[in-house]
Structures are given as C-alpha cells and as structure tokens.
C-alpha cells in the first residue's frame, strides 16, 4: 500500500515541481525535466541489472516509467541548487559560460545536497534495492546513512557531467521548434 502511494507521488511530483518553480521562482523548468529524463533513460537502461524496482508501471523489465521522470525532476533540482550555490558563493548573478567551477558545484552542491539524499529516500522507502549479489561493492558504508560509498561516488561522477546537458538543452526543449 505504501509503495503504491509512493508510485503515485513519483508521477505527481513532476507537475508539482514544475508548478512550484513557475509560481515561486518564475521559472519554466519543462526543458530541464525533459533533458533530465533523457539522461535518466540512458542511466536506467545501462544499469538495469544492478537494481530491483518495486513499482507497478514499468517501461523496460522492472524499470518504472516514473523513475525516468524522477531523474528529470532530480536534475532540475540539482541544476537549480548548484546554480544558487555558485551565484551565492562566487558573488555572481549568473553562471559564467565555460566556467569550470560550476562542475564543482554540480558535483558537491547538487549531487550531495539533492541527488544523494534522493537516492537515500528511494532505498529507505523500499522503492528500489541494490542487487548486492551483482554489484561487487566492498568499500563499506557512509557513516549514519548506511549507504554504500560506491553509490556516493557514482552520484558525484554523474553530477559532474549530467547537469551540463540539462543546462545546455533546457531552453531548446521548451521551444516548439
């Protein structure tokens, strides 16, 4: 029963997050969500054997449809948090094009403050579980969080590269042509 509610929420979060950004940040994040979802499709398809999902509506084997959109939501939040940290800490009004420091904010800010906590929620609520019989993870667990270090490193590496795609294409995905 609890899982079905989580599944419903993973669908609802897309319009909710879109609306909240529109209402409170005066920002259309449709493009970010689409770009992030594209990344999600690649990530989930290529790593499918390593996790086990427990939702009802799936697109490929046990990968839920809403998980792909959840990547879109997560990358939207990651890009937003990373951008805010960048502007705040570097005292800028916007990200300077090709400023490599944004990679640091994406990885540390967005990844650790948004991405990894989202992963923890997913694991703790039982939405998915790691296939430890296939993963070969042996670095141990992050203290207090009971999450494998490998998961943290994977998130950091992903956040180093993915937000660039989201930022670059967000505007284009909001236009019709």
């Amino acid at each position: 029963m609890k899982l079905i509610l989580w599944e419903i929420w993973t669908y609802l979060q897309v319009p909710v997050i879109w609306y909240l950004f529109r209402r409170f940040a005066q920002r259309n994040v449709k493009g970010e969500i689409i770009a992030g979802t594209l990344l999600g499709i690649y990530i989930e398809f290529s790593t499918e054997p390593l996790w086990q999902y427990h939702f009802q509506i799936n697109v490929y084997k046990d990968i839920p449809l809403s998980i792909l959109a959840s990547w879109g939501v997560m990358f939207t939040l990651v890009s937003f948090v990373s951008e805010k940290l960048y502007c705040r800490l570097l005292k800028k009004n916007e990200i300077e094009p090709y400023d490599k420091r944004i990679l640091l904010f994406d990885m540390l800010g967005g990844g650790l403050l948004v991405g990894f906590p989202s992963e923890i929620i997913g694991i703790y609520t039982g939405i998915w579980e790691y296939r430890y019989d296939r993963l070969n993870w042996d670095w141990g667990n992050v203290p207090f969080l009971d999450m494998p270090y490998e998961s943290l490193v994977a998130y950091s590496l992903l956040m180093l590269i993915a937000p660039t795609f989201v930022r670059y294409w967000q505007e284009a995905f909001e236009k019709k042509k």
Partner: peptide, 11 residues
C-alpha cells in the same frame, strides 16, 4: 568514460 565505467563495472 569514468562515470560510465564505474557505473557498469559489475557487468
């Protein structure tokens, strides 16, 4: 490549 390889290492 570093991300990709780290992510699918077991496969």
């Amino acid at each position: 490549g570093v991300f990709s390889e780290f992510a699918v290492e077991p496969l």
